[in-house]
Nucleic acid binder design. Sequence first.
DNA 1: TTTTTTTATGCAATCGTTGTCGGTAACGTT
DNA 2: AACGTTACCGACAACGATTGCATAAAAAAA
Lengths: 342, 342
Amino acid sequence: MGIITIKDIAKALNLSTSTVSRALRGSYEINAETKRLVMEYAERMNYRPNPIALSLKENRSRSIGVIIPEIANNFFSQAINGIESIAYNRGYHVVISQNHESYERELVSTQYLAQRRVDGLLVSLSGESNDLEHFKELQSKGLPIVFFDRVPQDYITHKVTADNFAGAYEGTEHLIQQGYRRIAHLTSPSWLSITYERLEGYKKALQNHGIPIDESYIKYCSHGGMIAEEVENAVLELIHHPNRPDAIFSAGDRLTTSCMSLIRKEGLRIPDDIAIVGFTNLVSAHLLNPALSAVTQPAYEMGQLATEFLIDLIERPKATIRFESKRLDTRLVIRESSLKSS
Amino acid sequence: MGIITIKDIAKALNLSTSTVSRALRGSYEINAETKRLVMEYAERMNYRPNPIALSLKENRSRSIGVIIPEIANNFFSQAINGIESIAYNRGYHVVISQNHESYERELVSTQYLAQRRVDGLLVSLSGESNDLEHFKELQSKGLPIVFFDRVPQDYITHKVTADNFAGAYEGTEHLIQQGYRRIAHLTSPSWLSITYERLEGYKKALQNHGIPIDESYIKYCSHGGMIAEEVENAVLELIHHPNRPDAIFSAGDRLTTSCMSLIRKEGLRIPDDIAIVGFTNLVSAHLLNPALSAVTQPAYEMGQLATEFLIDLIERPKATIRFESKRLDTRLVIRESSLKSS
DNA sequence: TTTTTTTATGCAATCGTTGTCGGTAACGTT
DNA sequence: AACGTTACCGACAACGATTGCATAAAAAAA
């Protein structure tokens, strides 16, 4: 006997579907005995309400969509765990959709999730997104959206980020304090919030220590390291720079690992020839050769917080809300890759 | 001006919904002029059929569910990319669900995906699953299931795995050839197929080289490394073994990285005190300290193949099928962690 | 002109569930 | 005896889309 519906129960018990429906949700206007009968039968037949029918009827799905650039990235996979931890507790399912830093795929995923009537969206922008119309339109139609990590500037909603400025400042200052002076910055596409904020932190640290900013030390990788060639070119340009940097402050898992690979491939030593601090959540940072100094984000907590924001938005749509932009502290873990060999 | 339905189009154009529906799918019995009108209007209003209504009507969703233990694992995230590459090309969406090695969560995810009418399931078993009734029942109701990586033995369907036996044999033999004799094996829960097959490969290699098998060298971690304590205990037992192993052949990303951490934390050197070969797809294996020798699986291809099997099953349900068990070759990459310092 | 055929369209049922409305029976109240 | 309450339950429509069947109008054949 395949999947059982409310209709089957009604037929079997000689009741109407409405009665069965009400009995199942314990409505007060159903006789206790009838309720018992229905409940028992439903239990016995392992009845489960059809979520698709409910979605159609109620125009919602009790699930939230997550739109991120890449699953295979420690920051995002940790964030997903945070998201799920809250979502499941509050009765929501989580649908994950990665776009590999492609605007086109971000667009398609967004449409798809909206069509499947997710009740809300958690978004970290792709490396190619500067147009946000697709989000704006959905939001204006009443779909709650919360951004995290890579957030748009001119967009009114809840946002959850790490304190990228402070994190970058701290990472850069650490390099300066170690005695490095020619510090390069390898980073994500220039139009992303994380890029800008980290860049500002980096610059401010240099400034405050009287080190001039050399624009040729700043390299953007417009696909966040997804395109190997791009990172390779950027790193090689730094390595073969007429005034080779003695340290690199790099952003992102992929960027940082690629950068390390290339430096080693070119026969240079870390940190002796070039030191590295990564803005990354790599779990194996301490196992790398050399152990990687890293500014890490509280990814799990960011996911949790963003999800709480989102679910509040979903469940109290009328509440007059002051949208918040939460900024969580990063943490600098110093390891070998940034130590001055004296 | 929210989301537009077929009804809105019908009303606007003074037609019936049936006509609109047929016009949109280009039915031959609709007047060319009417068709044009409908198409144009739909285009202009950016009409998209409601997938939920379709799912309800057709009892399918044009999506496939993926049930895996952990997203934050290089093997699985690579496999997901392979899965998506095929699925999207063939018009299916992919819904990912991780269970963190918990049987309970695997069960819930499975039920959820089935209720949401995924057209098929791609499964890699959780570390806790030995009961497979939930899969069997769904399959008997006509839901196609294809297993990959961690496959059940007594289950008739397509299966896609790496050649775990050969991979483990090769990895172990490599250690032997390097001169290691006291080779331990740190592995996943004993009842998983991958565990058994790799264990057999490991044993066979030892046997063929006349090395006795010491059961106390074989450590199972029943949660695949997800519970730190468990791995810690296992590795410590090996390290403090009266006859300490001089090499460890370890399975899985988490297991391998934890193992390396612990060895180092205990003040031992790799490979001088203990050599390591990991059965893992860690992308940063070459960056570790020391660079990790690894048996890697063709994760992307495994995902692709499994998906092709599944979609064939979905789209040709009646075809008398001989279920296949495909076994793909692994690849041993030798790096520093397993080299004998002579 | 009448009959048949073709063409183009609408009606109604269906998927599973719930909300609205309405109905019946039993009982209490005057 | 007449009416109002209350408790319980069912019919129907709706959500959005598809589809078998019916049918009107137009075209073709008689």
